[in-house]
């Protein structure tokens, strides 16, 4: 295949991936709709069980089937998504993360893979699928609309093996933080619901009752952040090593560097908060959400609005 047809194939696969993810979103909705019988949790509350929501009520077969369909569609979509990157890379004969379109596409891919891994290791957490994949679809649509860039060669500054090291790890770290942040958002929502239930509130018949237990969400948020943090740390260090070779100093408070630092500090604060009395639980989860906001800000605002060395306008 010629580079042009590979590039066209990559663009086509992008649409396929978005379509498949959308189907997976529908299937996850169906799983939530049919998945659990909230009546059972109501009975438990009536019996005065201390943490009724933590019990996962049996899922009926319809729900389980939808869950399997949703996971299958997600994996299929992720395969197409991965192929978008592979064909891009083949078309341009380089790593497919040389501009913002490619970087963002790859980051979303890592987020999906992280979710799939979590979903296979802890099937109970597949119920957050809707809340991971809906942002994924939204992000991909926005990426396709606003960030799209034609397949092309890399600018000189990016022709370095550090591209493979620094940018790959940044993508992986970001993708993992994405899942972690979503888990924390869901934790915040769900823990409020559980607190209301503990105060004798009426159980929800909607989505709230079908989310995984707050404790499980908190745990997955923390575990993924613990996994992502050293990767992000490595990405920042690798970036500094690259900057030393490319820009003449290892750290210069370029806007991108500044926000990478801010994100790193916020995630360090999150990990501390998780082990500190008075910060555990909801405050810590908020810190994690702020961390994700900082990461997204760093991707969007800093690339599009501010002018720094990371804009790759040229050699200067």
């Amino acid at each position: 295949m010629t580079p042009d047809s590979l590039a066209a194939l990559s663009d086509g696969l992008f649409s396929v991936a978005v379509a498949l993810y959308s189907l997976a979103v529908v299937a996850f909705c169906a799983q939530l709709a049919f998945g659990r019988r909230p009546v059972r949790s109501a009975e438990l509350v009536g019996a005065g069980a201390p943490a009724p929501a933590a019990e996962a009520p049996a899922e009926d077969t319809r729900g389980r089937r939808w869950g399997a369909v949703a996971m299958g569609l997600t994996v299929l979509a992720a395969a197409a998504h991965g192929a978008v990157l592979v064909t891009r890379g083949l078309a341009t004969d380089r790593l497919p993360w040389g501009n913002m379109y490619e970087f963002a596409t790859a980051t979303v891919f890592v987020a999906v893979v992280a979710f799939v891994i979590v979903g296979f290791r802890a099937p109970g957490l597949r119920h957050i699928g809707l809340f991971v994949l809906a942002p994924v679809v939204l992000a991909l649509v926005l990426i396709g609309l606003f960030l799209y860039a034609e397949a092309g060669p890399l600018v000189a500054a990016l022709r370095s093996s550090w591209l493979a090291i620094h940018v790959s790890t940044a993508i992986i770290g970001f993708g993992i933080f994405f899942v972690s942040g979503i888990a924390s958002v869901l934790y915040l929502v769900r823990s409020r619901y559980e607190a209301r239930m503990a105060d004798g509130g009426a159980p929800s018949t909607g989505v709230l009752a079908r989310l995984p237990a707050a404790a499980a969400l908190d745990r997955v948020a923390h575990r993924t952040a613990v996994f992502g943090f050293p990767i992000w740390t490595f990405a920042v260090i690798a970036g500094a090593i690259w900057a030393e070779a490319a820009w003449g100093r290892f750290w210069g408070w370029d806007p991108k560097e500044t926000w990478a630092f801010i994100a790193w500090v916020v995630y360090a604060a999150y990990l501390h908060a998780r082990t500190t009395a008075g910060w555990r639980g909801r405050p810590a989860a908020w810190v994690n959400v702020v961390g994700l906001a900082v990461m997204i800000f760093n991707l969007l605002f800093v690339n599009m609005v501010s002018t720094g060395l990371h804009s790759y306008a040229g050699l200067n």
């Binding site: 630092f261 501390h272 910060w279």
Partner: peptide, 19 residues
């Protein structure tokens, strides 16, 4: 540790105007 968290936050916040 509680102070450390607050200071970490302050550090992150302090870097913002620099960007």
């Amino acid at each position: 540790m509680r102070t450390a968290i607050v200071l970490l936050f302050l550090l992150a916040l302090a870097a913002v105007p620099g960007s």
